[in-house]
């Protein structure tokens, strides 16, 4: 396989947790990776670790809410670049510990919406031509908080509910361009974000992000047309396709 044939993937928020696990899985699956996250050092550490496993990895530190950063991500692909997979994983939880909606500072809520809804859409807009050239897939990471209305999770949950609708709508709008869009709720995981939601509490009963590997193996090997527009729970006991 030459470098030209290699599939390319972008993962945001790849410096730790689920993003890091996804980057590792995609690297092992021979995707050429472009990883982003706000902090350079942890991102470089992940990239170095994946390169030792044989993966082709580039990094671009930056904030997904920054238009110049998103532009730089698109420019890395080149003017006629092709993209096979975009994973919008970078997410903002809001204040830790979580606060009820009546006490959620509005600037926090705006930041949550900027990171979790506006930035993923902006990145998709930026990368749509490259995704169309690759008949690519978009995976937006969501949460059961988008559905359940958990106390304290209102800001984050509202943003993910909006992202779910963005995903579903885009799936229909981008179908003719050959781009598929899915929402994936990874389920509770033992990650820094989940710990931030429950500071000081023991979350060791939650599984590590590795528990989602069978789901990624499944999703990324399905026909994109059979999964587009759907919302999946990575830890559920059934993953259904259309038709």
């Amino acid at each position: 396989m030459t470098a030209e044939d290699r599939r390319r993937a972008i993962v945001t928020g790849a410096s730790q947790g689920l993003g890091e696990l996804l980057a590792q899985f995609l690297g092992d699956e021979h995707y050429e990776l472009l990883l982003t996250a706000r902090r350079r050092e942890p991102l470089e550490r992940v990239a170095e670790r994946l390169r030792r496993r044989g993966a082709a990895v580039e990094v671009l530190p930056g904030d997904v809410t920054d238009a110049a950063h998103r532009r730089a991500v698109a420019e890395r692909l080149g003017p006629a670049g092709r993209l096979d997979l975009l994973v919008n994983n970078a997410s903002e939880l809001g204040p830790s510990p979580l606060r009820p909606l009546t006490e959620l500072p509005l600037e926090s809520f705006r930041r949550i919406l900027e990171v979790n809804v506006v930035a993923p859409l902006a990145l998709i807009q930026e990368l749509a031509p490259a995704l169309a050239r690759g008949h690519g897939r978009v995976v937006n990471i969501t949460s059961d908080a988008a559905i359940e209305g958990y106390a304290g999770w209102g800001g984050y949950g509202a943003s993910k509910a909006a992202l779910d609708l963005v995903s579903r709508t885009l799936a229909g709008e981008l179908r003719t361009a050959g781009i598929s869009v899915v929402s994936v709720d990874p389920g509770d995981l033992r990650t820094a974000m989940h710990q931030a939601a429950y500071p000081g509490q023991d979350i060791s009963d939650r599984p590590l992000p590795e528990v989602t590997v069978p789901f990624w193996a499944w999703l990324l090997h399905r026909d994109p047309a059979a999964v587009t527009g759907r919302r999946y729970r990575a830890q559920s006991d059934r993953w259904e396709v259309a038709g």
């Binding site: 590792q24 021979h30 599984p207 590997v213 069978p214 193996a217």
Partner: peptide
């Protein structure tokens, strides 16, 4: 060999 099956070291994804 791509990845271990989570929690079951005897099983592995192979491409």
């Amino acid at each position: 060999v791509v990845a271990r099956y989570p929690g079951i070291a005897r099983l592995a994804f192979v491409r």
